[in-house]
């Protein structure tokens, strides 16, 4: 269990580093897929099966394919090596170090964050997480589901408008 956690965490983190380091956008997109697979495995380790599968289907499947499609369509070239913006490297290093120090400080403060993985109560048949989330989605949260549907429609219309040849 712990070994798997470290394995998948390393997968997610090194995939993320690959996105930042890879010069070629296609390799960056593939590192991103690796990172999302690791992340989805962490979700599944946390007993969030539906969310883990959704992460793979929507992020690694749909969104990254869309990214790859656009990369191929635009024929994006690799960033050339000579132009090295030291200022932005220094700024990014400072901001990221500050952020990580902050995270470590907050995590070391104690409280509930040191607790170990609690045991789940046994569920009766048909009590899977998909079942429970479905009940919540179409029961308590029926209105946000409708709103998200409208949002997706608006996004579709917006994309069609943006993709027209004459934009103005």
């Amino acid at each position: 269990m712990t070994f798997l956690f470290y394995l998948f965490a390393a997968l997610a983190l090194f995939g993320g580093i690959g996105v930042v380091v890879c010069r070629n956008p296609v390799s960056a997109a593939f590192s991103m897929i690796v990172s999302f697979l690791g992340l989805a495995s962490l979700f599944i380790q946390l007993d969030a099966y539906l969310v883990g599968i959704l992460q793979i289907l929507v992020y690694a499947g749909a969104i990254m394919v869309l990214f790859l499609f656009i990369i191929m369509l635009l024929d994006v070239k690799e960033e050339e090596k000579r132009h090295f913006p030291y200022i932005s490297f220094a700024g990014a290093g400072a901001v990221v170090t500050a952020f990580l120090v902050l995270v470590i400080l907050v995590l070391n403060r104690g409280g509930t964050s040191g607790r170990t993985l609690p045991e789940l109560a046994a569920t009766e048949a048909g009590g899977s997480d998909v079942h429970r989330i479905g009940e919540l989605l179409f029961g308590t949260y029926w209105f946000p589901v409708q709103i998200v549907g409208v949002l997706l429609l608006a996004a579709t219309v917006g994309v069609v408008v943006l993709s027209k040849k004459e934009l103005r």
Binding site: L13, G93, V95, L100
Partner: peptide, 8 residues
């Protein structure tokens, strides 16, 4: 850490 990588 993942968030920091994205930020970088």
């Amino acid at each position: 850490a993942l968030f920091a990588i994205g930020l970088a």
